[in-house]
Amino acid sequence: MTTPPPQPPPDPYGQPQPWGQQPPAAPAFFPQQQQPAPYGYPQQPPQGGPGPWGQPGTPPYPQPPRRSRTGLIVGVVAGALVLVAGLGFGAYKLIDAGADAVFPEATHRLVVEEAVLDGEFTLNVDLSDTEGKKIEDTPDPSVRGGKAVVAQYRSEDDDMLVLSGMYGRLSSPGLMRGKIMEGAAAADGAEVVVPPREFEPEGYGITVECQVVRSHEAGLTTNMPMCAWGDGNTAAVVALLRQADLSQDAASLDLEKVAEETAQVRSEIREPLS
């Protein structure tokens, strides 16, 4: 009787293997674990390099976002009327909140036009539903039925015009004009560098009050010429910033010209109630 040849040892995974071959290594279902970092701190990918599993790594030196000059100016101008309502008119003693006769009849309103100053500036963004809502939600006993308009305009030369106004029945429009100037000066990071002056642009029949406000924030410094008007139905402030003026000294800015442009803006956005 012939003795059968010896059989190869069984494969650990249940499959016989020919003689002279090694069984395959166990599949690596899991990645090899990294050595623990000293003191128990988790290991981090090197700055600027790829992250684990092909995910992008962290940037080498992440920088916080900086606020733009545009956002800074819009904040100062739009906030002027909020500060007026919150800080100024609440202390008036001459206004009886129940005496409706103190307030003039509503005849006009303000609208956000697609272009102003004879088309030089076109509408960039209408902020009436956001910044304007803050104005409307601030109690003001000197206004009946107040509505706010806030808008930012740009020119082809990248000049900027910001409008912040309200309309309704205003009991003290002249006083409101001055308070708008104070409100802009009281904004965070702002200071008056050219004090308010009154102008009466020819052909418009209104008084416009103008000043230059310097604002500082996030490394940006801006001299903003701004003017305000107030009548029985409307009050607003206009800031007009031209690229050619950025390098100018605040005292050299032509406020009389800005007053005329503000009066023109008023004539373009103020319309009779239908």
Rank of each mutant, 00 (worst) to 15 (best):
P4I: 03
P5L: 12
Q7C: 07
Q7F: 06
P8H: 06
P8S: 06
P10S: 12
Y13P: 01
P16R: 10
P18G: 12
A28P: 05
A28Q: 15
Q34N: 11
Q34P: 13
P36T: 10
A37L: 08
P46C: 02
Q47V: 13
G48T: 02
G49F: 07
P50M: 12
G51F: 11
G57K: 07
T58A: 14
P64V: 07
R66Y: 11
R67N: 05
S68Q: 12
R69N: 10
R69A: 15
I73K: 05
I73Q: 06
G75T: 12
V77W: 03
G79S: 09
L83W: 14
V84Y: 12
V84P: 01
A85C: 13
G86H: 09
L87I: 12
G88H: 05
G88E: 02
D100L: 13
D100E: 15
P104N: 04
P104D: 05
E105I: 07
T107R: 14
H108I: 02
H108K: 14
R109D: 08
R109W: 05
V111T: 15
E113N: 11
E114P: 13
V116A: 03
T122D: 05
T122M: 13
L123C: 07
L123R: 08
N124R: 14
V125I: 11
L127K: 06
T130A: 12
T130F: 12
G132E: 05
I135A: 00
I135E: 00
D137Q: 15
D140C: 10
P141Y: 05
P141F: 06
S142M: 08
R144P: 06
G145D: 10
G146S: 08
V149L: 13
Q152T: 07
Q152F: 02
R154G: 00
M160R: 10
L161D: 00
S164I: 03
S164A: 14
Y167K: 06
S171D: 07
P173Q: 01
G174D: 12
L175P: 02
K179P: 01
K179V: 14
K179D: 11
E182K: 11
D188F: 15
G189R: 03
G189A: 02
G189P: 04
V192T: 15
V193E: 04
P195W: 01
E198A: 09
E198Y: 08
F199H: 11
P201V: 05
P201N: 08
E202N: 09
G203L: 03
Y204W: 09
Y204P: 03
Y204L: 02
T207L: 15
T207M: 15
V208I: 11
Q211W: 04
Q211R: 09
V212K: 07
H216A: 06
H216T: 07
G219D: 04
G219H: 07
L220S: 14
L220E: 14
T221G: 08
T221C: 02
T222L: 05
T222I: 14
M224F: 01
P225A: 00
M226D: 04
C227Y: 00
D231H: 02
V237C: 08
V238C: 01
L241V: 13
L241A: 01
R242I: 01
R242D: 04
R242E: 10
Q243A: 08
Q248D: 12
L253F: 01
A259G: 10
E260F: 12
T262E: 04
V265F: 10
S267H: 09
R270I: 10
R270K: 15
E271Q: 15
L273G: 10
L273W: 10
